[in-house]
Design a protein around this nucleic acid. Structure first.
Length: 763
DNA sequence: GAGCACTGC
């Protein structure tokens, strides 16, 4: 039974004080101001909390509360969640798991964790409350806001934890905002998550890979740890699914976790559909933007398109046509600025979306208008105030995974209803707005999926499977997924991990696999990094891995392609793109004091700095496992050793040249591919390993390095076991290599191959 | 002779 904070022996609030300072056994009210007097952990009522919040002393720090605190408190009281505090405490006190629905503007992300703090009193027990976010910026900015609201310094009682930045103070921080991926990492080393009293999964409806895995883990942990509470916060449409999923955590629950619902605070948005389907959505979008500009009241426009090129193109066209309109009728049509927005834009240029709309061209003339043309980034990650009109063609680029050929690629696909709703909502942030959907109402009702498929169904799961095995989940097929991935996707992941020797034939984690899981990398990369000291090139592989983990460093402006290509050629290593990446990074470090070096060489300084950061992080992990950092002293072997180490990780991503036209076949999967035009190889070697299979205008291999076939046989004998290898030209080439290696004379191909050859001739 | 939706460890 929980005891109240009233000065009895069990008073956990005083446990940190020396015994003589504890007011034990006394029935007289405390002489010191104690804002949390009488608080029973997890039995707290709304009126108690409100009284504590209204006091003069910070209940958590015992310091006097500032005037700023009072001011923020007044604005907090106006939030919809705040008015439902009593209901929240009733639900929270009585249930281990609750699902909460809080629409945009309800204040759930900032308020609920604070409410929980008053109930859990985590600071008295050395525990923490965690609130996960899918994005780093959100974790950081919300933590800052909540620290202000609680009148504490960010990083003390309230902090955040994201990759590369831990803004928490052990022993002091009791409320921690963090990325979902970060909590998943923590779970790998503390599967019971003992540090936490309550875990809040925010934005669960986004269904990121990490949130989905956390839901499965936490459901299980909650069954074992009855003291752990969970709050799953989501948008309306998904709530029921989560309620059912968490329904059987406690035996007394009747198959459905309770729902706590808080309305949002947004303005109405009127939605319009087209009468007929639009054959060309970009053209229709441009037309609609111009129609709004001509005919609608002042207010900024947000247009959703799918990618960089499409956006830049549309911006040019909108600008040109809007200028025409204004010149034809300067009285009626105001000036228009068109601002592109996508993630690979430098942050400074992304800031332009917050610029005000242009003023009228002449005094008293038609007002100006701002049009933001954006990818999905404006759907969740970035909020632009002042948007009144949204134009939604109904498409976005989405990741899809094909386990059959093991290829992850981006495809332009129709969005979901939930996504369309989210987009429309962007028009109602500051005042009532309008949303123009460039598809018919019927298509909306019948063609669009309710929800975007969760990421777990659209991804290669090699990494996730390794993490799960490290977490002690043996039976991956029967893991309690919210949505189970395709069995074939799991099979592919297990197969890859087995070939990499991260898992043994029974699916158990090997010592190597255990170390691999510690690296925030794809298993192929952690494998080659771990084995690289054997080839005397761990310094170099570390750099290559870091470079492969950040966005493309090569910049190619449309108006300076030739110059950019020349700059790149000067840094190119002809044996392979991986080696070029190494060379670029080393040159960057050598010229680190020349601030213009990256710019003059058409390289992204931001991506290079990021690579440096990643490299440092990985280096620390290597140190922890005593993986040496070494460099080959024999210059003649320098590149060869690196290429051998690359094979140790990427032997399943090999292509063999077939014919003379530069066409390649991927080994075993037999996909016809070409080297990407950005590839820097000076010849077309017979054997290459590749980092990426890209499905764009046609299938391409990106980031390619030449390898020798005898290395394949040597480094990955089980994968290249010729007795089980599928017949074909690739196998015949490998047989020739093997025969030569074994000192045999070149001889006629064996019977099996004869048959294959005959078959090939026929077709 | 192309392009990189977005996020995360």
């Amino acid at each position: 039974m929980a005891k109240a904070l009233n000065g009895t022996k069990e008073n956990p609030y005083l446990a940190h004080l020396p015994p003589d300072q504890r007011r034990t056994g006394s029935s007289t009210p405390p002489t010191v101001k104690e804002p949390l007097f009488g608080f029973l952990p997890r039995k707290v009522k709304g009126d108690q909390v409100r009284r504590a919040m209204e006091g003069d002393v910070n209940p958590f720090t015992k310091r006097p509360l500032s005037a700023q605190y009072k001011k923020i408190l007044d604005s907090r009281k106006k939030l919809p969640v705040f008015t439902q505090m009593d209901e929240f405490y009733n639900t929270f006190s009585e249930n281990q798991v609750i699902v909460m629905v809080g629409e945009t503007g309800s204040g759930k992300t900032t308020q609920i964790p604070q409410f929980v703090a008053y109930s859990d009193l985590p600071h008295t027990k050395g525990k923490l409350i965690a609130c996960t976010q899918p994005r780093r910026v959100a974790a950081m900015s919300v933590a800052k806001r909540v620290a202000d609201e609680m009148d504490v310094q960010l990083g003390k009682h309230v902090g955040y934890s994201i990759r590369f930045e831990d803004m928490t103070e052990p022993g002091t921080t009791f409320l921690k905002y963090m990325t979902d991926g970060m909590l998943l990492r923590e779970a790998m080393n503390d599967p019971e998550l003992q540090r936490y009293s309550t875990i809040i999964l925010d934005e669960a409806h986004e269904r990121t890979l990490a949130t989905d895995i956390l839901m499965g883990l936490l459901k299980d942990v909650a069954k074992r740890r009855k003291d752990l509470k969970l709050i799953v916060m989501s948008a309306t449409l998904d709530a029921m699914k989560f309620q059912k999923y968490f329904g059987n955590v406690s035996s007394k629950d009747s198959g459905s976790a309770p729902l706590f619902k808080v309305p949002g605070r947004t303005h109405p948005v009127e939605v319009f559909y087209t009468q007929e389907p639009e054959p060309d959505y970009v053209e229709a979008a441009i037309r609609t933007v111009l129609m709004i500009h001509r005919a609608e009241d002042p207010g900024d426009i947000l247009l959703f398109l799918t990618g960089e090129e499409e956006i830049e193109d549309a911006c040019r066209k909108i600008k040109a046509e809007a200028d025409d309109l204004m010149n034809q009728d300067p009285e009626a049509v105001g000036p228009l600025t068109c601002i592109p927005l996508y993630s690979s834009l430098p942050p400074q240029q992304q800031q332009r979306i917050f610029d005000p709309a242009p003023p009228p061209r002449v005094e008293g003339g038609a007002p100006g208008r701002k049009v933001v043309v954006s990818t999905n980034i404006a759907e969740t990650s970035l909020t632009i105030d002042g948007i009144v009109y949204v134009v939604d063609p109904g498409f976005s680029k989405q990741k899809v995974y094909n386990p059959r050929i093991r290829v992850e690629s981006l495809l332009v696909s129709p969005i979901s209803k939930a996504s369309a709703q989210q987009r429309a909502g962007r028009a109602g942030r500051t005042r009532p707005g309008k949303c123009f959907r460039l598809y018919t109402e019927k298509d909306f009702m019948t063609e669009l999926e309710e929800q975007t498929h969760p990421e777990i169904l659209r991804s290669n799961l090699a990494n996730t499977v390794l993490e799960l095995v490290k977490l002690g989940i043996k039976d991956l097929v029967h893991f309690d997924y919210v949505d189970a991935p395709a069995p074939e996707t799991l099979m592919r992941a297990l197969e890859l991990l087995n070939y990499l020797a991260a898992l043994d034939d029974e699916g158990n984690l090997t010592a190597l696999g255990s170390i691999m899981a510690e690296f925030p990398l794809d298993p192929q990369m952690s494998k080659m990094l771990i084995v690289s000291p054997e080839f005397n090139c761990s310094n170099e592989i570390l750099t290559i891995v870091a470079m492969l983990s950040v966005p493309n460093v090569f910049i190619r402006p449309p108006n300076a392609r030739r110059e950019a290509d020349l700059a790149k050629a000067a840094l190119t290593v002809p044996d392979g793109d991986h080696l070029t990446l190494l060379n670029v990074f080393n040159s960057y470090k050598q010229n680190i004091h020349d601030k213009n070096w990256a710019w003059t060489n058409y390289l992204s300084a931001r991506a290079l700095a990021q690579a440096d950061n990643v490299r440092t992080q990985l280096e620390r992990i290597m140190e922890r496992f005593d993986i040496e950092l070494v460099t080959t002293q024999d210059q003649r072997k320098f590149y060869e050793n690196i290429r051998k180490a690359l094979v140790c990780g990427y032997f399943m991503q090999v292509a063999h040249k077939e014919g003379e036209k530069g066409s390649y076949l991927t080994v075993k999967d037999n996909q016809v591919v070409a080297l990407h035009p950005s590839c820097g190889l000076e010849t077309q070697p017979e054997w290459v390993i590749f980092n990426e299979f890209a499905l764009t205008t046609r299938p391409y291999l990106r980031t390619v390095t030449e390898v020798r076939p005898e290395w394949l046989l040597e480094m990955a004998p089980s994968y290249f076991d010729l007795t089980t290898f599928p017949d074909g030209e690739t196998k015949r080439a490998l047989v020739r290599v093997q025969n030569k290696k074994m000192g045999k004379l070149p001889r006629a191909i064996d019977g099996q191959d004869q048959r294959a050859k005959k078959k090939q001739k026929k077709s």
